[in-house]
Write a protein that binds this DNA or RNA. Structure first.
Lengths: 331, 331
DNA sequence: ATGAAAGCGCTAACAT
DNA sequence: ATGTTAGCGCTTTCAT
């Protein structure tokens, strides 16, 4: 790889001038600019992003960190996709950090990202008190949270109206005539889990249904938890007639458990999931779900981050996107 | 962030000595080592990976590039997950490049990765003649290919026995008694698409079934292509009794098309997909599929890459992992 | 409009 | 065993 020095030599100018045309800062004589451009082409010169990053502290490194809890969850994949589109458009590149709900790993990644001199971070904190993200935030680096907020600090957040989305979903279920609606929630430490549960409770209450605590379970947001809890629920003497699942993975696990028992959806048990998937119509029956605009969440977060990098002083924004109930046939 | 200089000052030594204890190269007096370690702790010093990368060309930068065609394909997500595990264990971090089958984008990403001075690259080339990856390879940087090989060059590859996997699958279908087995393939430019098709043809031939070219279609490997082609196939006067789909996304699209027509699987049409998913049991009926060990492909590729970074001279390896036919209920 | 030179944080060769 | 020093490739004053 040719260096700026070689370009300068070939063009017969100093490296400062080369740097100038590259960053089209200052004015430079049209003739010399041409000479330099020519040399760049001939040498196939490409600036070193590493050197640039080392030299010009923050903002010019074109490097973003993305810290997410579980890349195997389709929701986060779509978010990531949205972030990537914006990053690519702006010549940023992404270091992908999947911490798998492991707080130790999260901490390690955060340290590395700092040491990589990233320009900004998009993160879904492990929970709303997440001390590691908070510390990172305090270090002054631009941060945007997705899907999960942070309590007691001022930070950009992009998420969805979790409580409202759950409320709508459960209300719909009630209106459909379901009486014993169970809920399998995710990790209680994750804010969205609690908000969705709140929405569930509120819907039941507002419709005059009594809340049966036996029908409310909370696991660890995984596929396996979906299988397990659905199994328990279905084994109950007086089993529920409908199931409201707390996320993607739980839903899928629930479907496995239902399939296993050869029960009919929605005949034996209706299923409505929080989180939609691009292939929900491939499920049989097609899944009725609360759709989070995952791709757009990522896109918006990317935009906010780049804005903040350019203007660290701009006030924080909390952007709540709307979820949408996609009615298909499972409920 | 404290720099090495500050550590040196606080410990009352030169930065060279600090560097020595950090890389535990050379011998350094136990006493001074302690002083330095103490200073490091007190200042919460963390070496700058950027500076290190700039200085020590190649191999010590702890940065890997991953270039994949479609992050929204669950197969690649699992591969990525495998790579990440190995990377993390070895203190490497990953720049994620999703090129979405867009060769222009692929080229841009490759340029950027070079400019980022990555230590190595794991890539699924757009196709087997992919000139951009070949060029990259020629530049001398360690490269490992996954899922797709490269023709006419010596390179590490980790993939699966595509032809054999397809052969087994289709043979199984034939033994089950299906007579008119259709195949929806992926992009013909992708080697695995062709190999799977080859396996399909060979199985039919070996079992004395005639090949009906009307039952063979090839699309662009997407979900939509699965929907479309399945639709066409199902609308045929003499429609197939079974479907062998060429990848994950196609399978899902096919299921949507079948659901839409309220057809029964496997009664009206059996479905067997290449590529398994972690939640195949959530499908109804559970999907019979050829399972690629995606996570392990990623893991092995990561291992090979790190080996090559350490020893650029070691001979290239082509690692073929075995696929496995997971018999469930869709076929 | 252009150049010289300092320095970002580190490694490694060369001294001592 | 430890220090000095020259870069890695770039940006950015400060001169001219």
């Amino acid at each position: 790889m040719a260096s700026m020095n070689e370009v300068a030599k070939r063009a017969g100018v100093s490296i400062a001038t080369v740097s100038r045309v590259l960053n089209n800062s200052d004015s430079v004589n049209e003739e010399t600019r041409m000479k330099i451009l020519k040399a760049i082409k001939e040498l196939k010169y490409q600036p070193s992003r590493v050197a640039k990053r080392l030299r010009s502290k923050s903002g010019a490194g074109n490097l973003l960190g993305v810290l997410i809890p579980d890349i195997q969850n389709p929701f986060y994949v779509d978010v990531l996709r949205g972030i990537e589109d914006i990053a690519y458009q702006n010549n940023y590149v992404i270091i992908m950090c999947n911490f798998n709900q492991d707080e130790k790993k999260e901490a390690v990644y955060l340290d590395i990202l700092e040491s990589e001199a990233i320009d900004g971070l998009i993160a879904a904190p492990a929970h709303e008190d997440d001390p590691r993200i908070k510390k990172f935030l305090r270090s002054g680096l631009p941060v945007v949270c997705v899907d999960r907020g942070l309590k007691g600090v001022d930070v950009d957040v992009v998420w969805v109206n979790n409580e409202e989305g759950a409320y709508q979903a459960v209300s719909y279920m009630i209106e459909k005539g379901y009486k014993r609606i169970a809920h399998i929630g995710g990790l209680p430490t994750i804010p969205s889990s609690r908000l969705r549960l709140d929405g569930y409770r509120k819907a039941l209450k507002d419709h005059g249904l009594e809340i049966d605590e036996n029908l409310i379970v909370q696991g660890d947001s995984t596929y396996t938890s979906g299988i397990e809890f659905t199994g328990k629920l279905l084994n109950m003497a007086n089993r529920p007639d409908a199931l409201f699942t707390g996320n993607n993975l739980i839903t899928l696990g629930a479907l496995e458990a239902v399939n296993e028992r050869k029960l009919d959806i929605p005949g034996d048990i209706a299923v409505l999931g929080f989180d939609d998937m691009n292939w929900s119509n491939a499920l049989n029956p097609p899944l009725t779900a609360v759709r989070q605009p995952a791709y757009e969440i990522g896109k918006r977060a990317g935009e906010l981050l780049i804005q903040r990098i350019k203007d660290p002083k701009r006030p924080c924004i909390q952007m709540t996107l709307n979820s949408e109930l996609k009615v298909r046939s499972s409920c």
